[in-house]
Design a protein around this nucleic acid. Structure first.
Lengths: 205, 205
DNA sequence: GGCTGAATGAATCGAAAGGCCTATTGGTCG
DNA sequence: CGACCAATAGGCCTTTCGATTCATTCAGCC
């Protein structure tokens, strides 16, 4: 097989540069590196790479949205998502968006390369992560619940959430109760902390 | 000047590998890469590098604690801290611990190299960051306040904090009020979020 | 067609949190 | 010594929150 042609999307220059060098040292052709999802979509249109190494949390357009667009336009372009968070919900979203695989950034660099080559070779690869796989935990928050979680992670009060989502305070409370139960906590502060640890929401949202 | 001999400490393998390759491409000798603060301290003892590229948030022992130990034992070893967060409080702590400079990970890789070489050459270098510098903010929480912040970051209730610290609920509330004022928030949830962003407390505490 | 789960809305009740005061005790600093 | 501040504590009052229970609508699914 000829040399793989890839694109790297990551908002951290150090990471971007490091990944590029790592890939190049394995004789992978890095066509370009970009800093956000929007640029990634544009670059794919222009360069038609074999694969994209896509960071999930990025400004302008996150990796999941970018993956969705890229995959819908170019089914032959493989997307491999990288993330710091070992969280199921995010991984699931990325896979649904069309990522071939989701790797946490705490896997060794060589593994990223080998997985990339495997995927390009057409081998079926399942999701791989490093440690603390929280299987059996199986917490599944609904979209609405995550939406509400995101709002309390911005410090919103119950009333505030209600008006932002155009639903009554009562309903918000009901959702909150469900969230608390699922996350096994008793108040919004603990819920925020738990959600942050699980990567369900991010601090800079 | 002869080739610089450095040590890299970062808990993310991808980052570790990337940094190593970046450094090596600039003809800097990377003696070893380690994954946490404890290992960094041990490696410095063994290898006496010229400098350490130290990530701040790491398991086992964070970069600040490691920096403090290293600098106290080897004043000739330069420590350069890297972090994702552009937060003053954390930067200040790192500098106080003996870091020569704190760089956010969103500066270009070449800058990391040039700063490293400048510092090794003995040139005075001031703190450099990419954007959003929050000068003039100058928030100073007391030790007690930070202690209480740490407890609410563990999800503790006001009553709980009181019994943990052997003070009355009223006193806790007073401290909380001061904290809210200093952080410019109105409730504990927002306080936790603000404290996390500022690096006053950490999620895994 | 009936079951289930998600989203919505609601009532009630007690506990917790937060706002706004005042006050005492010990330091520290000029 | 007097000024100031951190830490402690209390009172009072309002708002918010969380727990529990119930009901309705709508969608997907066997």
């Amino acid at each position: 097989m000829s040399q793989a042609r890839i694109l790297i999307a990551d908002d951290h220059p150090v990471m971007r540069d490091g990944l590029r060098r790592t890939m190049e040292s394995y004789d992978i052709d890095v066509l370009e590196t970009v800093a956000d999802g929007r640029a990634a979509v544009a670059a794919v249109e222009r360069l038609h790479p074999d694969a994209v190494l896509m960071d999930i949390s990025m400004p302008a357009m996150d990796g999941i949205a970018a993956t969705e667009i890229i995959r819908s336009r170019h089914a032959d372009v493989v997307v491999i998502c990288l993330t710091f968070h070992g969280d199921d919900a995010v991984h699931q979203k990325a896979l649904e968006a069309g990522a071939s695989i989701v790797l946490t950034k705490d896997v060794p660099a060589e593994d990223v390369v080998s997985v990339l080559l495997e995927v390009l070779a057409g081998e079926p690869v399942v999701e791989r992560r490093s440690d603390r796989s929280r299987h059996g935990g199986e917490l599944s928050l609904t979209a609405r619940e995550i939406e509400i979680l995101a709002l309390i992670t911005k410090g919103a009060s119950t009333t505030r959430i209600g008006s932002e989502l155009f639903i009554s305070v009562k309903t918000v409370k009901n959702h909150l109760a469900s969230i608390y139960e699922k996350l096994d906590v008793t108040d919004r502060t603990q819920a925020v902390l738990s959600a942050l640890r699980l990567g369900l929401v991010s601090l800079d949202s």
